[in-house]
Simulated assay, not measured.
Amino acid sequence: MSVAQTIKHKTQEFKGRITEGIGRTTRNRRLQREGRTDRVSGSLKRAVDKAKDAFRR
């Protein structure tokens, strides 16, 4: 797992948290859904990278 990928996935997760929070504040369900999708997607990508790294060693 490269450092660039790790940063990219963490950034996506963070962006999702921000978007989801803005959606909650403004009561915009579309933003909430997009934020949740980004957050979960970033989280899953990080988990897959960790699993790949564990099997390489």
Rank of each mutant, 00 (worst) to 15 (best):
residue 23 G to Y: 08
residue 7 I to L: 09
residue 5 Q to E: 14
residue 30 R to T: 11
residue 17 R to A: 09
residue 38 D to H: 04
residue 25 T to V: 07
residue 34 E to P: 01
residue 4 A to F: 02
residue 10 K to N: 13
residue 45 K to P: 03
residue 46 R to V: 07
residue 48 V to W: 01
residue 2 S to M: 05
residue 41 S to Y: 00
residue 19 T to Y: 08
residue 2 S to G: 15
residue 52 K to I: 09
residue 12 Q to D: 11
residue 6 T to D: 10
residue 18 I to V: 15
residue 46 R to F: 01
residue 57 R to G: 02
residue 6 T to S: 13
residue 35 G to P: 07
residue 39 R to F: 02
residue 8 K to L: 06
residue 46 R to S: 15
residue 20 E to K: 11
residue 49 D to A: 06
residue 22 I to K: 15
residue 49 D to Q: 09
residue 2 S to A: 10
residue 5 Q to K: 06
residue 56 R to F: 12
residue 27 R to E: 11
residue 43 S to G: 15
residue 24 R to I: 02
residue 20 E to T: 06
residue 20 E to M: 05
residue 29 R to F: 00
residue 23 G to N: 12
residue 7 I to S: 04
residue 26 T to G: 05
residue 4 A to W: 00
residue 9 H to P: 08
residue 4 A to R: 11
residue 19 T to P: 10
residue 33 R to T: 07
residue 5 Q to N: 14
residue 54 A to Y: 15
residue 16 G to H: 02
residue 1 M to S: 13
residue 26 T to H: 12
residue 44 L to Q: 11
residue 7 I to N: 06
residue 41 S to P: 03
residue 29 R to K: 13
residue 36 R to K: 15
residue 47 A to S: 11
residue 27 R to D: 15
residue 19 T to M: 08
residue 27 R to F: 00
residue 21 G to R: 15
residue 40 V to A: 08
residue 40 V to E: 14
residue 47 A to G: 04
residue 55 F to M: 01
residue 32 Q to N: 08
residue 36 R to I: 04
residue 34 E to F: 03
residue 25 T to N: 12
residue 42 G to V: 01
residue 46 R to Y: 05
residue 57 R to W: 10
residue 10 K to W: 03
residue 1 M to D: 14
residue 6 T to H: 07
residue 33 R to C: 02
residue 46 R to P: 03
residue 50 K to N: 07
residue 33 R to M: 05
